[in-house]
């Protein structure tokens, strides 16, 4: 029966997608089907307001190996909308399912509505410079980033969980070792204050000065993509931007950050944005609440001194 499909390899995200699915249900009048794969933890899923819960069980534990089974489910049930968790695995699975269904897919939709027989979605373009409103023909799929929706609460009902056998053997692929990524320092997205380093900082040794500034603010250190990926001065986990960390601290303080749009897209929801840069016309100042135009090597030591006294 036509319905709204929910899937994520991350169960917290599944609960957030259920909220989005239930909002769509109000207008579409179709049931919300939640799909879990393999050994995913059912806790807290069956007592949400979702209409049906299906567990696809196959012999292979790799989440991506379920793309075919999810696509088969979607075409058998003739689903009209599919919401997928916007994790790296989820985006891959969603695109494979979309290709198999011959369906449209909106990546990292920020809003999803049903309107005039189509899904109406919004998303960012050009590294965050613009917002596109798009119309997707049914069946329509979308991936949704973590924390876009609140987790669905529990309801009184206890939904029956239906297990479906899935053929998900892989012939040409074997999955080797997985290693947790060792993060240095705290989770940047949880930091209240962030001092961010850009290419205006001339050499790696100068990071100690920035460290002192961060300390004076009780802030974490973040950076632009160039500092992490081109210069390798700071770990990749510390770069802020549309393809890196998305942060919204109480204060973002950019030092030598010019403000390329891809970077801005990762920090522009910060409460207060401050910037120091040489170039008066740098785009960072348009995105900032407060700024100082000047040589950071002159300004930062003065600032540290002022903050200490």
């Amino acid at each position: 029966m036509p319905g709204i499909l929910i899937y994520s390899d991350n169960i917290t995200l599944t609960k957030q997608l259920i909220t989005a699915g239930l909002l769509l249900k109000e207008k579409m009048n179709q049931p919300v089907y939640v799909i879990l794969t393999g050994e995913q933890d059912l806790t807290g899923i069956a007592n949400t307001a979702a209409d049906e819960v299906f567990v696809l069980k196959g012999s292979n534990p790799w989440p991506e190996s379920y793309a075919d089974a999810i696509a088969n489910f979607a075409s058998t049930e003739q689903i009209s909308a599919g919401l997928f968790g916007g994790t790296p695995r989820g985006k891959d699975i969603a695109a494979k399912v979309a290709a198999k269904l011959g369906a449209g897919l909106v990546t990292e939709a920020q809003s999803v509505e049903f309107d005039d027989g189509c899904l109406l979605t919004t998303r960012l373009l050009y590294g965050g410079l613009a917002v596109a409103t798009e119309e997707v023909k049914l069946p329509a799929l979308a991936t949704i980033a973590p924390k876009t929706f609140e987790e669905a609460g529990s309801s009184d009902k206890q939904t029956e969980v239906i297990t479906i056998e899935a053929a998900n053997e892989l012939n040409q692929i074997t999955i080797g070792e997985t290693c947790p990524v060792v993060r240095e320092g705290v989770e940047l997205s949880a930091a209240n204050r962030i001092v961010s380093v850009g290419r205006g900082v001339g050499k790696k040794e100068d990071l100690s000065m920035i460290g002192e500034l961060a300390q004076a603010f009780d802030a974490e250190i973040g950076c632009t993509r160039g500092i992490a990926e081109d210069y390798h001065w700071l770990p990749v986990e510390r770069y802020i931007g549309i393809s890196g960390q998305k942060v919204k601290p109480d204060m973002y303080f950019g030092v030598g950050v010019s403000g390329q749009v891809q970077h801005l897209a990762g920090m522009r929801e910060s409460k207060v944005i401050v910037a120091i840069d040489m170039n008066e016309n740098a785009p960072i100042f348009e995105a900032a609440d407060y700024g100082i135009v000047g040589d950071l090597y002159e300004v930062v030591p003065l600032l540290i001194e002022a903050l200490k006294s």
Binding site: L124, L125, G128, L129, A130, V131, A132, T133, L264, A265, R268, I273, E280, F285, E286, A287, A288, D289, Y290, G291, I292, V293
Partner: peptide
Amino acid sequence: VKGFVMNRKNIVF
């Protein structure tokens, strides 16, 4: 397609 609007104080010293 619309430009993303940034509403900031833009106080630059």
